[in-house]
Amino acid sequence: MSNRKTTKYIEIWNRKLHIYIGLYLLLFLWLFFITGLVKNHPEWSFFHYWENRELSSSETPIQVPMDKDDLVKARNIMAQLHISGEITWTVVTPMEDQFNFRVAKPGKIIDIKANLREGHAKVEQIKLNTLGITNMLHTFNGISMNDPKESRDWFMTKILSFLMDAVCIGLIFLVLSGIYTWYNRSMKRIWGALVLGIAFLVCGFFVFGLGWMP
């Protein structure tokens, strides 16, 4: 294939992929960007979902798990209680035979306090409304930046985290393919370069410039 043909081929596929990836990611982009906007505006009273949370509590008998590993033990109890989600922390109090842990998933935070001596578990649940669920989805990746040991333990968190990465890579592709398409249109080069230059200058000032300021 000649150079010209290759360039044309890349141009066509770049444009096609720009359209397809944009369409495929549409709902994910809206979800993450709108929830991001909401997070920046805690003063918007109609988004106050935490005040409208539902609290419930129940006590259930359980079969005491014999597993030594905390995560396996927690999963065993969760299976008995028909609870799914990401285990965010576990606390063992050996003197009292108490095993406490928290399970989270978008819209639900569940604290389980299992008494391993008597074989029962107290389940305290916080349930959020739709806005709470969407807000939680923005940050729900199963790990914390402050805890280097924490890792994802729920299959769905791994899926969501993979999707977050995919959305980001898709977004980076959309930006780069947009620039490539523009660059091949000689008519709009000056205005495009001007807008792009200003945008990178403003953003660069925030990323690098502010740190250099006294």
Partner: peptide, 12 residues
């Protein structure tokens, strides 16, 4: 184009 560097900051 205007939002592209900001998108890159958020994506990365």
């Amino acid at each position: 184009f205007f939002i592209s560097p900001f998108i890159l900051v958020y994506a990365i």
